[in-house]
Design a protein around this nucleic acid. Structure first.
Lengths: 206, 206, 206, 206
DNA sequence: GATGAATGAGAATTCATTCAT
DNA sequence: TATGAATGAATTCTCATTCAT
């Protein structure tokens, strides 16, 4: 809220200011779709956005700062995912429900691939801001997923860890540049999703 | 081999030259343990190694070049992992065997965390050299893992995809800076490994 | 007076305007107490004052302009000093009288240290506005001091130069950031004042 | 010595490097003769010196850093002044001896006006490096001057403080941009020196 | 085999300043 | 009377890179 209220020059932000700030964020995501993260420069970002680079510094401290703002914004968009996890899962419709879950998860990544990838990149390298926001965003998801797992298969010894592992797998697959060329044979994200679904169902039915 | 035989000035490398080259690679890995990858510079790397930055250019083209050399070196160290996957797995000793597999996998990452992380980072961003070496290194592992899965549980519809997914999950967990703070509760790598083992066993027994 | 009557936008200044202008001047002096002169910027000054930097330009042309306004204001505050110098000095009460003079001089600097230091700094570097105001302010003081010296010790060959030298010494000592660490042993301003008094008395009695 | 041995890139400096470093220092002093201190920029300084501004950063951290190097160099040049103060002063030849002292002092300032002015400017504003070097350089001078004063006029209650005051006066006069326009009447440095001499003699004879 | 020396190129950053509201 | 918004123009500063020794 504070962030939205003041720019870095200490001025209250009006409509125009908020728009410019948003335009810069949008262009950041746009550019990171095409080019490597470590080559993104303030000057280029500013000029692509159509503002001068001084204007950039009115709204952000540096590149990391915009990136974080983007990640923060994306982190708010989790409602759909929570919704699927809040529904009861049952053995009868299990496959459809798991499938739905994986689909929604993939859609989330489809929509926020850039932000989520950056978040993980930085977090994996120990950057605290990003580490923390990842924890915050993931916490609720993992709790609910753990609950689903425990309820359906109470025999499991490590439901929580399994939740984490499944979550990691889905994230890893969703984040890859060109999916499937991890291995020898090109796999579409769709095919891999089938694998994920089968894997989850297997562990829940066991 | 050619690469090892002469430096970029076209001189044959003697003992001293080989040592210097190796010192630079070692320091690269050392530094990437502490600091962010995108902040690594030739000047600093050289000065930490105790050579002048001109010396760096005697052995490497640029930063990416050392990184790749490190990744290449690490990629040779896969024998243990292949060994576990070449043994027969059977339902009777399944848990012990899977456990062994996960252990060896984790040890591999423990030993080459920096190199493997860099490899994935670059590959995920579409860097071809790194993408290719990942494919090369992963291919054999995945084939063998797929085989193990197919043999133990022939009912599975997507054994190959499941292999990829399991592999992805293990890599994702192994690569994290401080493991477990993905989620709400700090998990040790050991605890997560239990989850992985249980997950794999579940899918194989199903 | 004209200056006080209207701001740089040509508007007549009302109470509020005068207050804002004064607040900026006060903050200028305040900030120069802590930080180096050459690092003072319009943006920071404005933001510390709690106005936007555009507001600054309503009242002042640039940083030098505020500084000069401050120096001008301080220059009006010389009555006490003139008063001491207008009294007769006589050999009988000499020490007390000289002491009084030095005290009043120090008080003046205590009160306007920042302004007087800036004035000298700029004047010493050849800035005309500041050079002139220094001359204007100092002229009367020096004349009266010369007179006191000549009357008490008519044998002196260079009474005027001695007045200038004494004045310079007092200013130099008064202006120092932490007094006395010019030399080996920390001297309080009080101790140095004793030296000044003894020096002046000596030359007048000789 | 260390400073002379390595540049900021961590390279050992050879003849050529030392020369370049010195050229930059010389040009610094040269430029500060004409222009205001706070307008001196790295780019201009470098280009006047005939090197690129990157080269500047091979040898110095920033403008303050060169300035300090210059001040340090000047601080070594105190032998003449110490020499005059080490001679015995006696009442018979007092005026000639004091005159000699003042002359040598003025010559010192003539030779190192820029460095000494910068040193005082920064020290007066509380810059520690400069404050310290001023203390170091002044300490010995003040001790000797105090000694001279005490020996010649043992009746004085504050010989040390008087030494400090005299020193301050001489420095203040020597540093002024255009001498003498402190007061109403233009005074040459020569005339003011007469005043200083008369003042010192008076206090010593008293 | 190693490295002093120097730099081009470009990126980050800062600031004073304007203008419309 | 005050201020959001935006920017031009410098300047600082960093780095990879080259080359002669």
């Amino acid at each position: 809220m504070d962030k939205k209220a003041q720019n870095l020059h200490g001025q209250k932000m009006g409509r125009k200011g908020r728009e410019t700030r948003q335009k810069i964020m949008d262009m950041t995501l746009d550019m990171l779709g095409h080019r490597s993260y470590k080559d993104l420069t303030v000057s280029e970002l500013a000029s692509e956005t159509g503002v001068s680079s001084s204007t950039f510094y009115v709204y952000f401290e540096d590149i990391e700062d915009v990136l974080f703002a983007c990640v923060e914004a994306a982190a708010l968009d989790l409602d759909d995912l929570h919704a699927v996890l809040e529904q009861e899962w049952d053995h009868k419709n299990l496959e459809a429900q798991v499938k739905k879950f994986v689909e929604v998860y993939n859609e989330l990544w489809e929509k926020h691939r850039v932000e989520l990838r950056i978040r993980n990149l930085e977090a994996d390298q120990g950057n605290l801001r990003f580490l923390n926001i990842r924890i915050e965003t993931t916490k609720g998801i993992l709790q609910k997923l753990t609950q689903r797992i425990s309820l359906l298969n109470p025999k499991l010894k490590y439901p929580q860890q399994i939740a984490i592992v499944i979550h990691a797998a889905m994230g890893s697959i969703a984040s890859q540049h060109e999916i499937g060329i991890t291995g020898a044979i090109r796999q579409t994200r769709k095919q891999l999703s089938n694998g994920v679904v089968e894997l989850i169902c297997a562990v829940l039915r066991n």
